[in-house]
Amino acid sequence: MTDISHFARPGTQIHVRVTPCAGRNAVVADEGKLRVYVISAPEGGKANSAVAKLLSKAIGVPKSRLRLVRGDTSRDKVFRIEE
């Protein structure tokens, strides 16, 4: 898993590109962009929940501090670190 702990400051917005139904769960920094691969299907918010769980683990903040700001049904999502 990629170390992206520098995103852990409150108020930081994290832009990610999500690939659901992937073969593995992973967070990858690729040319300055974050890509999140999740095994979960994009049904009923399962993939969003899996993305939040992976990001919170990679960043080192509790999942409750990670808020989905934009992209609920899109592959391109924006999360914000809450205080």
Rank of each mutant, 00 (worst) to 15 (best):
S74P: 00
G44L: 06
T2M: 08
T12D: 09
L66C: 07
P62C: 01
I39P: 02
I14G: 08
A50M: 07
P20M: 10
A52C: 03
F79K: 01
I14Y: 07
P20G: 08
V28T: 10
I14T: 05
D30L: 14
V18L: 12
L68F: 00
R70L: 01
V28L: 11
I39E: 14
A58D: 08
R75L: 12
H6T: 11
L55R: 05
D72N: 09
F79V: 00
A52G: 07
Q13G: 04
E83C: 01
F7I: 09
N48D: 13
S49D: 14
I59D: 02
L54F: 04
R9I: 10
S64D: 10
L55G: 00
K53T: 13
K33Y: 01
D3Q: 07
I81N: 06
K53F: 15
R75N: 09
T73C: 11
K57C: 06
P10I: 06
P42A: 12
I59V: 09
K33S: 13
K46G: 01
P62A: 00
K46A: 14
R80L: 13
V69H: 00
A41T: 12
I39V: 12
Y37S: 11
A47D: 14
D3F: 03
K46R: 15
D76G: 07
V18K: 08
F79D: 04
K77R: 15
A29R: 08
D30A: 11
K57I: 00
E83G: 05
K77D: 10
R65E: 00
M1R: 06
A22G: 07
V16C: 01
V36G: 00
V38A: 01
V78S: 04
T2D: 13
L66G: 06
R67D: 04
V27H: 04
G60K: 01
G32K: 08
R67P: 00
D72Y: 12
L66N: 02
A50D: 07
A8Y: 05
T19P: 02
C21P: 02
E31V: 11
G11S: 11
F79N: 02
A41E: 08
P62S: 03
S74Y: 10
V78Q: 02
K63D: 10
P62E: 07
V18F: 15
P62R: 02
A50N: 03
D76W: 15
L66S: 06
V36P: 00
